[in-house]
């Protein structure tokens, strides 16, 4: 079975994992988003704010620093947790389709929406286990808050995904579409889902979920540097801390690109016709349309980050943990419920 075709596909998939939607893409675009977020927040406070590449400097500085393993920590979990968290996040990014481009075009699809919902749990659990392994009481408090945040965000996120599945299922007549590429294909044909009446509350709810899921400002009770000294990351220093900051940035990318795939799928898919209109054909056209789609995706992610994370960060103050929980389980869940009921009765 070691035919040359096998080797080329293996190389291709290795490229997918390491270069395009995988590690390198996440690394660059993730930290870029983080930089733009910090710059936007500063600009909104009339400050000049750090250079866009500041997260890169932070990451490489942390790589250079010494990693102190506290005596009370259990060493292997302490060192392994960040790596597993980042690996899981990068793998999630593989499943999110970039408009027409999908990593697993000719393979049976690996994961659908509910699976992605659960895959998002792994990075959260890895942070918690890492924090718990240090044994510091700050990490204990951070763990308790992080878990309540995950609990709070889970309910509305589930409802949003179910309502999208039902809405697309209604249109296609098959009742239910769980696969993400199915949703994007539908949007390619019928225009992005945000246009549907029933989908607007769901999109709004998803916008409110993104800062909560990534643990950004108003919902960062888990890593409140003023109250519990960076909570879970209290005892981390050096490279593991750098990897946690990197996975935080990549999570921003993953969630925004998930939002684009779910609700704005229709925007990028029209590019083929454009490229065809210019008259290019064959490989060049495919490459050009791919690059264009990636650019559109990154652009949309940047706009989304500005709206959902930076703006909310500049305008609000940090919520107490039980306010956060109540906010998510009443306001955001209400929105998601509206769209679920609307989708249910076939709007």
């Amino acid at each position: 079975m070691f035919t040359p075709a096998f080797f080329t596909t293996a190389l291709l998939y290795l490229g997918y994992i390491l270069i395009f939607p995988g590690f390198l893409f996440c690394f660059v675009v993730g930290l870029l988003l983080c930089g733009i977020d910090r710059k936007a927040v500063a600009r909104m406070q009339k400050r000049v704010g750090p250079p866009i590449l500041q997260p890169f400097y932070d990451f490489f500085k942390l790589c250079g620093k010494e990693t102190i393993v506290p005596a009370a920590a259990s060493r292997t979990t302490f060192m392994l947790a960040p790596l597993v968290g980042l690996a899981a996040l990068v793998v999630i990014q593989l499943f999110i389709p970039v408009f027409n481009f999908r990593v697993f075009r000719n393979l049976p699809e690996v994961a659908d929406m509910i699976v992605i919902l659960y895959l998002l749990l792994i990075p959260a659990v890895s942070v918690m286990l890492g924090g718990a392994a240090t044994g510091s009481p700050y990490a204990g408090i951070g763990l308790s808050r992080e878990m309540v945040t995950v609990l709070a965000v889970e309910l509305p996120l589930v409802m949003v995904l179910l309502s999208v599945a039902k809405a697309v299922g209604n249109e296609l007549g098959t009742g239910l579409v769980f696969s993400l590429s199915g949703v994007v294909d539908y949007q390619a044909a019928h225009g992005s889902l945000i246009g549907h009446v029933s989908m607007i509350p769901a999109a709004l709810a998803m916008l409110l979920i993104i800062p909560g899921e990534t643990g950004n400002h108003p919902f960062d009770a888990a890593e409140a540097e003023t109250e519990i000294c960076e909570g879970l990351l209290a005892e981390y220093s050096g490279a593991p801390l750098g990897i946690y900051k990197l996975s935080h940035a990549v999570k921003m990318l993953t969630l925004t690109s998930l939002f684009v795939a779910l609700f704005l799928g229709g925007i990028g898919t029209g590019v083929e016709h454009l490229v065809a209109a210019i008259g290019l054909t064959g490989g060049v056209a495919a490459a050009l349309s791919l690059i264009l789609q990636v650019l559109i995706l990154v652009l949309l992610c940047i706009v989304l980050t500005l709206v959902t994370i930076s703006f909310v960060h500049a305008v609000t103050a940090r919520l107490k943990i039980e306010q956060l929980f109540k906010y998510y389980w009443t306001v955001v869940t209400g929105l998601a419920l509206i769209s679920l009921v609307l989708a249910w009765y076939g709007f």
Binding site: P137, A139, G140, I141, L143, S144, R145, M147, V148, L151, A152, A221, K320, I321, E322, L324, F325, K326, W329
Partner: peptide, 13 residues
């Protein structure tokens, strides 16, 4: 930090 004093946010609500 463990046992009873975890998940205050959820239990309080």
């Amino acid at each position: 930090v463990g046992g009873g004093d975890l998940f205050w946010g959820f239990k309080h609500n």
